[in-house]
């Protein structure tokens, strides 16, 4: 593996996604199901400090911008809305690749409080990729209107992840969200994600693969997820590995 400096290595990888940031600028990704209010959160946080383009090599819109909170400037990247991260479409591929290879300092998953259950498929997929994420439960006003009551504390406890309720359209809860992002970036707000345990054969295969991947790739990536993708025979991931680590 050619890159020796871990942090500069990550910035090189981020630049492949057209996301440029220096070490002082933490990178925050916004992910979630379609139509949950990601762009509304993005616009409320970044205001006019944003620009749009395309994801490299894809006809998928990319929006990024910056916001400042308590003296730190953060770079925010709005990912396309997806129900899954299995890379069955260009949108899913972009979202998955950025969360995995771009290694955001924090991923904010924006969920729809009116249909919480439907959001959990993506939540568990993200949980497998990274422990550094926050669940922003948006559309709380709509949920209230539909008489949906959510026990935020219990949900947070069950997921092992901070949950921040918001009404992005009215900018409610966004200060709490920024506070949580800042805390996670500083390493003060930590998570205890509840990972999926698979059948014994799969767990044994993972125990076999992970140390072998580690000797080739190092510890920068979540190797358990990578090993799961290899067991899945995910050709896109195999191509990525060949492109990045063939020397």
């Amino acid at each position: 593996m050619g890159l020796t400096n871990q942090s500069s290595g990550i910035n090189v990888l981020r630049e492949r996604f057209n996301v440029k940031s220096n070490l002082e600028q933490p990178v925050i990704a916004l992910a979630g199901n379609p139509n949950t209010g990601k762009s509304t959160v993005f616009n409320a946080l970044t205001g006019l400090n944003q620009h749009t383009g395309n994801w490299p090599g894809k006809t998928v819109l990319q929006a990024q911008g910056t916001f400042s909170y308590k003296g730190v400037e953060y770079r925010l990247v709005d990912l396309p809305g997806t129900y899954s991260l299995l890379a069955n479409s260009a949108e899913e591929e972009v979202a998955r690749d950025f969360i995995y290879f771009g290694n955001p300092d924090v991923t904010v998953v924006v969920g729809d409080a009116t249909c919480l259950e439907r959001n959990l498929n993506l939540v568990y997929q993200i949980m497998e990729i990274t422990p550094k994420w926050i669940f922003c439960l948006n559309l709380m006003d709509e949920a209230k209107r539909k008489k949906v009551y959510i026990n935020i504390e219990k949900l947070s406890e069950k997921l092992g992840i901070p949950v921040i309720p918001t009404v992005a359209r009215k900018e409610e809860g966004l200060t709490d969200l920024k506070e949580a992002i800042a805390g996670m970036v500083r390493g003060e707000l930590t998570t205890r994600p509840r990972l999926v345990r698979y059948d014994r054969e799969i767990e044994e295969a993972l125990d076999y693969l992970v140390p072998r991947l580690s000797s080739v790739i190092g510890e920068r990536y979540n190797l358990r997820w990578l090993a799961l993708k290899l067991l899945d025979g995910d050709q896109q991931i195999i191509n990525h590995l060949q492109a990045q680590f063939s020397n």
């Binding site: 129900y83 899954s84 299995l86 069955n88 439907r118 498929n121």
Partner: peptide, 11 residues
Amino acid sequence: GNIRRRLLDLG
């Protein structure tokens, strides 16, 4: 395969 996965992902 993938189609089954996609349908499951849609709920």
